[in-house]
Design a protein around this nucleic acid. Structure first.
Lengths: 317, 317
DNA sequence: TATCTAATGCTCATTTTGAGCATAAATGGA
DNA sequence: TCCATTTATGCTCAAAATGAGCATTAGATA
């Protein structure tokens, strides 16, 4: 017995964060939705997926990846919406392995390749740094309630209601920032996301509440955000995003970019201090307005000394 | 351009825990190493990987999977050691997607299929429930020190030393139970694991310090253990392993099976109580010796009410 | 009935959080 | 020059969560 062919795609969600908030590297495509950096896995050339991914990104985007971790392998039929630049192994089922790559503050990119875009363009409902985003009350919640009511049986309605409550924290249930992927998937199921209509080959106009991406790439980005929001709490991964020297405020602002809400400054510092992950250098930075801030550096040695945990996230209420 | 073929295998690490400690479902193979339940992904038949996995496990092991999550996709050349029962798409590169499945206490299995085996047969160094396992002092540490000294340059030796220290907590550095996969990979790199010699096609006899598995299956189990040990702390997944009614002691013993060390009983209960995940039923169980214990049940509703976290793990020192 | 073995209940000293008040050091006008 | 503004830092205090143990309770058994 011989199985139908399968083609493997490697997708990179390359993230950075700086002055302009959290960034993701996307490849713009003329008159089409932007895509993630993407390349086929070639078993003849690549001993491992990661080697393939690095080679591919460096070739195509002239960009050397640093920290990389595998996210998830997607293979649902009907959600792949093949990209034009995929080698046409005709009728092959496409499965995509998503990777998360973290890199220092958005460096200048060679033109013609990828460009940095703010995450929250694609996920405006995830940005609570300045309070609850309006899009939730104005568009999402009403649409979700409509979707709940549309279900045929009371049982199905109850199940939809539960799902919406948990993922979006409806009815005073509290927002859990790590549920970013669940929220994306719910918006997809309920048809609020442009990709859903596209995958069902509906031509119906969508109320565009956010920017969409090629294929299932926005889903992969949502996976990356969820992973990063979780991981930051139990592994010191934030430092992969920081330059060599940074102020505590800039570190805090990067963490806030990621988790999507504001933190209590003093408590953030106190907890950070206890981890031993950072060390003052004595150098100062005079930024715009206000007292100059000390520059700190990441103590990589700390990883060896202590039980490596992440960074505490004291939510500001 | 057309890429060489790729075959996708779906592997399930099915876990349970009961009186006899933590169990994993393996398929014994005559005169060969045991394997995980395994099946090829058929893109023509399976809309999603998970559907394929469930269908496959239910067909082959007459076993319905409940909780399932994807672990990782492995694709390193040279570590796959093809299984005989793989459909021979000649020369195809085999990539395997590992899944973690949790199920209630080891139910009787139809004979001829899989059978339950204690995890720690495959990972004896991971079981600290009765204190530090002897195998660490007797076999592993000396072998690791030899491996460190074998490196050619001082720089390489330092790097090996660091790696060994962090993963195995050498020189009083503290054992981190979540590093199970790192430890397996280190033992593999340092040639202490039978699979390493096999993959290098050495015929050299191995000091067998533990049972090995087919292909890269033990690596997948190590991934599952690491994932589960981490996840249990921030998601209430333990309950997937429990029967409807259970005593707090049996719950604790399941948690201990997973994390691999003993917990402080009173503190475990206090913390568990606060989560609101369990509820006494008033029914009692008179077990062997000692005062009868109350039977509790899992309050699934709790997931909706509270910010779902995991179970606190108050280590007993 | 005395003894053993678990299951439960409770206490107490430490640590870790959550919230804020207070002070310090630049910058940019008035 | 001096003051209002804007950040950066220091510190305090009450509340909650943890880590360790002692004490009591309730069946099973010799």
């Amino acid at each position: 017995m011989s199985l139908p062919p399968v083609a493997v795609g490697l997708n990179a969600v390359v993230m950075a964060a700086g002055e302009d908030g959290p960034q993701v590297l996307v490849v713009p495509r003329k008159d089409r939705e932007p895509a993630l950096p993407f390349g086929p896995f070639d078993p003849a050339r690549h001993r491992t997926f990661e080697i393939g991914l690095r080679e591919w990104v460096s070739e195509q985007a002239h960009f050397q990846l640093g920290y990389v971790e595998q996210l998830y392998t997607f293979g649902d039929r009907g959600r792949e919406a093949p990209l034009a630049d995929l080698p046409a192994s005709h009728k092959a089922r496409i499965i995509s392995i998503g990777y998360l790559a973290l890199t220092q503050e958005a460096t200048a990119l060679p033109s013609g390749g990828g460009e940095w875009q703010n995450w929250y363009q694609f996920f405006p409902w995830e940005d609570w740094r300045n309070g609850r985003p309006n899009i939730l009350n104005d568009d999402i919640e009403p649409a979700l309630r409509r979707w709940i009511d549309e279900a045929e049986t009371e049982e199905k309605r109850a199940s939809r209601r539960d799902r919406a409550r948990i993922t979006f924290g409806l009815d005073g249930r509290g927002w859990n920032e790590e549920r970013c992927l669940d929220r994306y998937e719910l918006l997809y199921s309920s048809g609020l996301i442009a990709e859903a209509a596209r995958d069902r080959q509906e031509t119906q106009l969508m109320a565009t509440i956010s920017r969409s991406m090629a294929s299932d790439h926005r889903r992969i980005v949502a996976t990356a955000i969820s992973r990063l929001r979780g991981k930051i709490k139990y592994r010191p991964v934030v430092f992969e995003l920081m330059p060599d020297l940074f102020t505590l405020s800039s570190l805090q602002s990067v963490v806030e970019s990621i988790v999507g809400f504001a933190l209590h400054k003093q408590n953030f510092r106190r907890a950070l201090d206890r981890t031993g992950f950072v060390e003052g250098t004595g150098k100062m930075q005079s930024r715009t307005g206000g007292r100059p801030a000390e520059l700190y550096r990441h103590r990589r040695e700390a990883l060896r000394e202590i039980q490596a945990t992440g960074i505490s996230i004291p939510r500001l209420k």
